[in-house]
C-alpha cells in the first residue's frame, strides 16, 4: 500500500510546479494496480492498464489543469478510462472473466476460513467484495485500496462529492453487514 506516498504527494507536488508525470505515476503505481486489479479481476490486465496509464499520462500531461483537481484524481481518471478500454476490448474478444478457479489449488479464502475467526471474516469480506457489482467494487478499490478522498473519487467518477459519499456509505454498510454475519 502506498499510504505514505498518498500523504506526501500534495507536498511533493505543489500546484504551481510543472507536473512530473513519472514521479506521480511511480508514487501511485501500487494504488493504480490495486484499483485496476480490483475492477478487472485480472492481474495481467491490471498491469497492462497501469502501463497504459503511464503512457497516456505522459502524452496528455499538457492537458492537466491544476485548478480542476488533484494530480492523483487526474491519473486515476486516466486509469479508469484505460480499464474501461480493457473491459471493452475483452468484451469484443475473449471472455470477460477472471482467472478460472483451479480445483487443484485450494481457494485462499477457504484456506483462510479454516484458520480462525479473523481469517474467516477476511475471507467473507473478500468474497463479498468479489461479489459486488463492478461500480461498487470500483469504489472499494478507490477508497480502501488506493486511499482516495471522497472528492478525488468524485472527480475520477465524474459525480458530485455528495453522490460519491452516498455511494460509499452504501458499500460500507453492505460490507459491515457481511462482517457481522461472518462473526
Amino acid at each position: 500500500m502506498s499510504e505514505t506516498a498518498t500523504a506526501a504527494l500534495p507536498h511533493a507536488m505543489p500546484r504551481s510546479a510543472p507536473l512530473d508525470v513519472e514521479a506521480l505515476w511511480r508514487s501511485c503505481a501500487d494504488d493504480l494496480f490495486a484499483y485496476a486489479c480490483t475492477v478487472l479481476r485480472d492481474p495481467a490486465a491490471a498491469e497492462e492498464v497501469v502501463a497504459v496509464t503511464f503512457e497516456r499520462a505522459l502524452r496528455r500531461q499538457g492537458r492537466f489543469r491544476p485548478g480542476r483537481g488533484e494530480p492523483r484524481a487526474w491519473l486515476f481518471g486516466i486509469a479508469r478510462n484505460a480499464a474501461v478500454d480493457e473491459l471493452r476490448r475483452r468484451k469484443k474478444g475473449a471472455e470477460l472473466t477472471h482467472d478460472p478457479v483451479d480445483d487443484a489449488v485450494p481457494d485462499p479464502a477457504d484456506e483462510l476460513a479454516r484458520r480462525d475467526e479473523d481469517s474467516r471474516r477476511r475471507a467473507a469480506v473478500a468474497r463479498a467484495i468479489e461479489a459486488l457489482p463492478g461500480a461498487e467494487r470500483e469504489l472499494v478499490a478507490l477508497k480502501f485500496h488506493s486511499g482516495l478522498s471522497n472528492a478525488e473519487i468524485a472527480a475520477v467518477l465524474g459525480i458530485s462529492t455528495t453522490n460519491a459519499g452516498s455511494r460509499l456509505h452504501r458499500v460500507l454498510t453492505h460490507l459491515r453487514e457481511v462482517c457481522r454475519a461472518a462473526v
Binding site: 490495486a34 480490483t38 471474516r121 473478500a126 480502501f144
Partner: peptide, 14 residues
C-alpha cells in the same frame, strides 16, 4: 478499523 483492515487485506499487490 477492523473492516478497513479486512478490506485492505484483499488489496491486490504488485
Amino acid at each position: 478499523a477492523t473492516l478497513v483492515s479486512d478490506v485492505r487485506a484483499t488489496r491486490p499487490a504488485l
